[in-house]
Design a protein around this nucleic acid. Structure first.
Lengths: 194, 194
DNA sequence: CTATTAAACAAACACTTGTTTGGTAAGTCA
DNA sequence: TGACTTACCAAACAAGTGTTTGTTTAATAG
């Protein structure tokens, strides 16, 4: 383990590093981003990164952790004020779509970089992902659905549809995250409350 | 351009090459697979691959082309004998899920390796993808749906949900491709025919 | 039997990768 | 003042990357 201690104001550089790395990982992918790319982005020499982080993998781990914390918070904020289970689902789904597309690069990294790209930490990364998906699962529990509905498959369907948005969504495209979420959720809602 | 000509029986080695590459690309990804990995898999020296293909990128292009041809065929075979639009959708969706998970590595590569990983051919790769997605779109046109339904978003939802299956599906898991397809399509069907 | 071609080998090339090492200027603290 | 620490630079390291080159073997065609 390296610094990560909060003393001094050094964490400003540390933070800049993580942010630059997150930007690059989110847009180019993990493998396609080199330590030299990251160093250049923060105006630093490649070797100097190793004062702050032990390895490229550790850098990703830190980003994943921050990303999950952020998406979890965004998600809960979007949902907490609502009571109706369907409204909660819709708001949560919209938060997911925003996280995958518009939101900070931290959250985007989580859905862009798959755990199997980093064998050393694949277990930890999967755990971080699960942490968020559990929140999503809670949402579904609140819904009253027809007996034919398999909640597990429903979760995977919505998660997959949301996740996939990162490949086609455009901020200035035809639809907003809210509109997309509303459409996706409506199929579930209409078929459950018939 | 290199051989690709069908003379001699040399295309047995050529074919072995493409198959080995497809296997590796499908399981490890494009960037994570080196020409040396591929060479080793077919018991050949790295340089020798360049007798058959001009570059690693060209190798992927060939795989994409073969993969799209295969998934298109599988898809049409699954659908052609059916008349009912809903049955056709369900069969098509099941074919997609099988292509993403169980089927040959050629089809899996298409969904595992994204076009932006190969800038040189990203246009061509996107065109190949679109070629298949157009088939899927045709299926949706046959459905009679409620006025609130946006067909474009519906397509993206189903495509995303199917695509995502590659991350969690297991051949000896709880569900078959058919069961998954049936569940996904049912949400659409129930909400459209209420 | 010879000329040509297909298919591969052996070895390198130029470059990029993540990472390590030794040193150093600036600041902190006793 | 002197010891210690923080944050970095400069330079290299070993390994791996896609690819090229010159050469060789085996088959085929005239």
């Amino acid at each position: 383990m390296k610094p990560q201690r909060s003393n001094s104001r050094s964490n400003s550089r540390n933070r800049a590093l993580v942010e630059a790395a997150a930007d690059l990982f989110a847009s180019q992918g993990f493998k396609a981003t080199s330590m030299r790319d990251i160093a250049r982005a923060v105006d630093m020499l490649p070797g100097s990164i190793y004062y702050h982080f032990d390895s490229k993998d550790d850098l990703l781990l830190a980003i994943y952790e921050a990303g999950v914390a952020q998406i979890t918070q965004t998600f809960e904020e979007a949902v907490e004020s609502l009571d109706d289970p369907w409204a909660r689902l819709e708001a949560g789904m919209a938060a997911l779509i925003r996280a995958v597309t518009e939101e900070s690069s931290f959250t985007r990294v989580i859905f862009k970089v798959t755990p199997d790209e980093v064998p050393k930490y694949s277990g930890e990364l999967i755990a971080f992902r699960d942490q968020f998906e559990a929140k999503f699962e809670e949402l579904l529990e609140g819904l009253s659905l027809q007996p034919w509905v398999n909640r597990q498959l429903l979760r995977l369907m919505l998660l997959g549809a949301g996740n996939h948005a990162q490949l086609w969504f455009s901020p200035d495209g035809d639809y907003s995250a809210d509109e997309i979420s509303e459409q996706f959720c409506r199929f579930v809602k209409e078929s459950a409350t018939r």
